[in-house]
């Protein structure tokens, strides 16, 4: 039910935003009260304003902005390592379908005999 979910989301966001605006309003009031010489009232407004700001900020961080932490889809490259049994030459190239370990690889560039696939592994996460 995507519509219902987005509605609930909208309501939650609206409430949190309202709370935030209110808190900022309190802070402004605190400032004007302080200028007017009402120091106790200023303190009271400041307290309430900060509390509201903390509450709304925390809720916002917990819900609206929160996305489950998931590492990006793991990117990796698979390589095929080939080894020439005659001259000891080693070669590494990207994996091709049909490659298998201890199966036949490409021809050795040095002595032109077929190399054997020594390993197939991936690098990166």
């Amino acid at each position: 039910m995507p519509t219902r979910r987005s509605l609930a989301m909208l309501v939650a966001t609206a409430i949190i935003t309202a709370l935030m605006v209110l808190s900022i309003g309190f802070l402004v009031q605190a400032y004007s009260a302080y200028l007017g010489g009402e120091r106790e009232a200023a303190l009271y407004y400041l307290m309430v304003g900060l509390m509201g700001l903390a509450l709304s900020g925390y809720t916002l961080a917990q819900t609206v902005l929160r996305r489950p932490k998931t590492p990006k889809s793991k990117e990796y490259k698979v390589h095929t390592v080939m080894h020439c049994l005659r001259c000891g030459f080693r070669d590494l190239r990207p994996f091709r379908r049909g490659d298998y370990v201890l199966g036949p690889g490409d021809n050795c560039p040095r002595c032109l005999t077929p190399m054997v696939i020594l390993a197939i592994y991936r690098e990166g996460e």
């Binding site: 793991k74 990796y76 690098e123």
Partner: peptide, 9 residues
């Protein structure tokens, strides 16, 4: 169960 890592090799 994912392609063999170099470290495993």
């Amino acid at each position: 169960i994912s392609p063999m890592r170099r470290e495993i090799y």
